[in-house]
Design a protein around this nucleic acid. Structure first.
Ligand SMILES: [Zn+2]
Ligand SMILES: [Zn+2]
Ligand SMILES: [Zn+2]
Ligand SMILES: [Zn+2]
Lengths: 156, 156
DNA sequence: TTTCTATTGTTATATTATAACAAAACATTT
DNA sequence: AAATGTTTTGTTATAATATAACAATAGAAA
């Protein structure tokens, strides 16, 4: 199965995901999600806009922000507040409330950890302060394995 | 001990904290930190600028952003990426690497949890993926105890 | 068809943050 | 003190991120 086929497969799955929630993955939204998925790490809204404009010259900021809002709300993408960047969700299977997003300082890559035990422990600790968690991703920053290797190679 | 005296006390402690690190808490930086401390929840850069301009009409965006950068670097303040907002650190005693910042969706208030065990467990889980954490605050969103009460009162 | 709603197009503007360079303050050496 | 170098602050302009507001279009329901 090549990349393109796989991408279409993911997009179809996403469309289905939307339908199950009574929402529609329109052509535009599908296009934006496609660009997000095609991107390895996270991507910024205006980078996404530039990409989108290659195929759709009429696109303007609201075009991409509206599509992103939709994708965020339906759970097909995540916003990384600390980077002002966006990333496709690749773990639709798990309902990953409170997923841990490990964000690389160097390459802006994201590793998503859907570990339920974190959600529970966090919720417990917060509850002790009377704090009720909203569904929310947790962003943790550092340097990914790959970038660490590059770093070491550079030092050699 | 009244509020004002207490604030001056905190500012003096902050000045000392800086000196120990070979940095200086200048008048301007002290003023900005003072405004941060006087604020209960988190505050946005341009709100801070407006406050600052009451006493220092010459202040411009770089004035406040430079002061904030300094405070962030020396550990006297935190940036909340998900809100584009800033908050004074009130736990200088602990070296709270990876402090948990519980951010209220409603009031923008912040409860800072300096729990070392979280730092360790997070680091372990991340290390399993080859991910090395950088010193970083972890932002968790929800609704604080106070705002929950207000909410219930409204429903009654 | 008619009507209503959701989506997209379009223009303008708000919000957040930094670049670049000049001036002033401060410290160090002579 | 004078001269020099460094850090901090002032100032203007602009970059980067995001939304408001309203018109046009497309889709669904009546
Ligand atoms: Zn996800
Ligand atoms: Zn990386
Ligand atoms: Zn702190
Ligand atoms: Zn609150």
């Amino acid at each position: 199965m090549n990349t393109e086929t796989n991408l279409e497969h993911e997009l179809d799955a996403a469309a289905n995901w939307c339908l199950q929630r009574g929402e529609k993955l329109t052509d535009l939204r599908r296009e934006v999600l496609s660009l997000l998925l095609a991107h390895d790490g996270s991507i910024k809204a205006y980078e996404l806009l530039a990409e989108l404009q290659k195929r759709k010259p009429t696109a303007a900021p609201p075009t991409v922000y509206r599509a992103l809002d939709f994708l965020l709300n339906v759970g097909l993408a995540h916003k990384l507040g600390s980077l002002n960047a966006f990333v496709a969700c690749r773990e639709l299977d798990h309902t990953h409330h409170h997923g841990l997003m490990l964000i690389c300082d160097r390459c802006r890559g994201v590793h998503e950890l859907s570990d339920e035990s974190w959600a529970e422990r966090l919720a417990e600790d917060a509850a002790r302060l009377g704090f009720r968690l909203s569904q929310q991703d947790i962003e943790i920053k550092g340097i990914c394995a790959n970038c660490q290797q590059v770093e070491q190679a550079g030092e050699a």
